[in-house]
């Protein structure tokens, strides 16, 4: 049995899932982000959450196109997604990508797509709070020094700062904050369609600037909540030749490794 069923498969069985997992382009195609996708599926299956994906019917939300300035393309892809979501009668969406999260939550309503949208860190926190998910005592991150990178689109863009930190606390990790965190967090450099283009001329890459700041906290791992941040942070570690010593994790991977 595959780790995730599509909405169409649920419907064929005559069932309605609790929640739609919006996988996103990175989660679907990027090798590193696929691991996060599978980790989240494993957790949801473990907790007995009935979730569906759109599978091949999902399209890019249009975030990079819109931010690059291409409103026509954004409207096109967004309206196609909304047709699909509304056809299935989707009510609640979880996503592991803050860019998809922001677009689905804040930008689809005006186009006719009204859903309750949460980020996977919020869902995981909720599952732990309600007891549907249990973490083991003295897990693999107990007392480990880690630092946490606020993605711009979960943090500043949507003011979600606490859910990821609550998860870190539940994991017993020893969080040491970077100088620039929460509202003042520094971007990883990928947003606003930068992921798809070369940097403009400058004297440093943004991800290197960010990883230098992360390394100042002497962490064993840098924790993030966004597939693009994870790529950028990992590239930054490589540039500083620290990718052997310091790991980059998505919160879902940490939770999966410590399920009780």
């Amino acid at each position: 049995m595959p780790v995730a069923k599509t909405y169409a498969e649920y419907q064929a069985e005559g069932n309605t899932p609790e929640i739609l997992f919006w996988v996103g382009c990175a989660g679907s195609f990027d090798t590193r982000a696929q691991k996060i996708t599978r980790a989240l599926c494993d957790i949801l299956n473990h907790a007995g959450v009935q979730f569906a994906i759109l599978g091949n019917e999902e399209r890019c939300t249009g975030d990079p196109a819109r931010r690059a300035g291409n409103e026509f393309l954004f409207q096109m892809t967004a309206l196609m997604n909304i047709e699909t979501l509304n056809m299935y009668g989707v009510q609640k969406i979880v996503t592991a990508c803050p860019h998809c999260f922001n677009t689905l939550k804040n930008e689809y309503p005006e186009l006719g797509g009204q859903y309750e949208v949460i980020h996977h860190t919020q869902l995981l926190q909720e599952l732990i709070q309600t007891g549907r998910l249990k973490l083991k005592e003295g897990g693999s991150f107990k007392g480990k020094k880690i630092t946490y990178h606020d993605s711009c689109y979960l943090g500043r863009a949507n003011d979600v700062y606490e859910a990821p930190r609550a998860l870190l606390e539940a994991l017993d990790a020893d969080l040491s904050e970077m100088k620039r965190s929460r509202k003042n967090g520094l971007c990883c450099g990928a947003g606003g369609a930068q992921m798809w283009k070369e940097d403009e001329p400058g004297n440093k890459r943004i991800n290197t600037e960010r990883i230098d700041e992360a390394l100042e906290t002497n962490p064993t791992a840098v924790v993030a909540n966004c597939p693009f941040c994870i790529t950028m942070l990992q590239d930054g570690l490589k540039a500083r030749e620290k990718n052997e010593q310091v790991m980059v994790y998505d919160l879902s991977e940490m939770v999966l490794n410590n399920l009780g």
Partner: peptide, 11 residues
């Protein structure tokens, strides 16, 4: 990226 979204539905 624009072409990919338009033709493949992915970035």
């Amino acid at each position: 990226m624009f072409n990919a979204i338009e033709n493949n539905g992915a970035a």
